[in-house]
Write a protein that binds this DNA or RNA. Structure first.
Lengths: 240, 240
DNA sequence: ATACAATTAAAACGAACGTTTGAGCGAAAT
DNA sequence: ATTTCGCTCAAACGTTCGTTTTAATTGTAT
């Protein structure tokens, strides 16, 4: 069938076709999402034959997975490695929240600044994938993120020992959501917010703005979960 | 062609078909997204003829718009109306941030608790739509949100006079992002966070947790946007 | 040179999509 | 009683999708 592994002694280089398909797919998946992107558009953009996509990657879903893992896996490994080093540097003291957040953000920033690794295109694709309802995408992200999230969660748990574990889980959920949503860069709301889209901040400045916002949220007091409906029922007695 | 408006004196009731299509479309669009949901699945679920969808709504995009505006328009009107009343009640003093956030959240909570208005299904659909790259969806949301966002932005501006307008725009962007992402309810990350998905919080408790988180973010200190690359270049001198 | 496996190329496959058609129906209007 | 009109229905339209097939081409080892 297919053989991607080079046997010993062979000098055949990896064909450019495969990389061209990955690059084109990354851009088009980012622009239009998974369902709305066709293999014909991808192979046309990559200037390769249609059948090459199925030959090299199997199915469209496998291609999407390849596009995602190519960049996401190394980035998450960087995140964990950076967190390890930062924690080791201050041991046995606990690493404060802002440094932990840094370990989460800096690898994303570095990826955004490196055009050879997809630049901000890939981060947008990642943000979109977060909100995609397709089961195989959710499974894929779960697998890719599980380790990293667990590692950061325990780090945050040490930095915020007073915070109940369940509340911490939710706040991490909010953080990952805000991060992915921001990176997805739906420009519709930027325009709403009266931001000039042409002189708009790049991803770097954007994450610099997001970090203090989320840091403050992490240190927020516990929510009052009692008397849920009081305010709710009282605010709207009648139509004005 | 088509006539939805009843002439004077006519007593013909609105056919159930139209509502059945809207309800089925709401659920299916929520579950699978716009592209992956077919008109055949919608009409089959609604137990109506396939052509009925095009007859009543024109195109698939128009149907999606009808599903969205049916609930979103009234909810955003409620938000603005509630904000007006809260501000009038404390005038001439400025309304504090937590009350403004309440005006943003409470109508969403009320919608989530009302099964007749789509319950939490619709909020999930809304969250998904936020991240959808399709241009017509982005245009649609821009139109639906523009007024409401502008109104809340000026309210927050009065409550946070020290905050630069651009920073406020971004924080509002983060808030709407976190809100929609949370409502979208991608369960993949809930599982990651080791939350029991079966005894999971409902939308009401969820928003109660989100509100203090975002409130703290609003009051966060200004980010330091100088020396952007210092930390970045320093953290990774070499591979370990 | 010959054999062989990897890759590309062109064409076609069946299925599923959004949409349209035209006949038929029942109730209101004339 | 007949016409009109909103609506439903089964069927088909043309297109496009992901994938497969078959043949030609390439480069490397025998």
């Amino acid at each position: 069938m297919r053989a991607e592994v080079l046997k010993l002694g062979e000098t055949r280089i990896t064909p450019a076709t495969k990389a061209r398909i990955l690059d084109a797919a990354e851009t088009l998946f980012m622009e239009h999402g998974f369902e709305a992107t066709t293999l014909r558009a991808i192979t046309a953009s990559a200037e390769v034959n249609l059948a090459s996509a199925n030959y090299h990657f199997g199915s469209k879903e496998d291609l999407f997975q390849a596009v995602l893992t190519r960049r996401l896996d190394p980035m998450n490994q960087e995140r964990v490695a950076l967190l390890d080093r930062l924690e080791a540097a201050v041991a046995p003291e606990v690493l404060p929240c802002d440094r932990i957040l840094g370990a989460l953000f800096i690898p994303a920033l570095r990826l955004a600044r490196d055009p050879d690794r997809g630049g901000s295109n890939f981060l947008r694709l990642l943000g979109r994938a977060y909100a995609d309802p397709a089961p195989f995408i959710r499974r894929l992200l779960s697998d890719q993120y599980a380790e990293m999230i667990a590692r950061f969660k325990s780090a945050f748990g040490r930095a915020l020992p007073h915070l109940p574990r369940k509340e911490l889980s939710w706040r991490l959920h909010f953080i990952m959501g805000a991060l992915s949503y921001t990176l997805a860069g739906t420009d519709a709301l930027k325009i709403i917010a009266e931001l000039n889209p042409h002189e708009s901040d790049n991803d770097e400045v954007l994450l610099r703005r997001l970090a203090p916002f989320l840091l403050a949220g992490l240190h927020a007091p516990m929510p009052d979960l009692s008397e849920i409906s009081r305010e709710l029922d009282h605010e709207f007695p009648h139509r004005p």
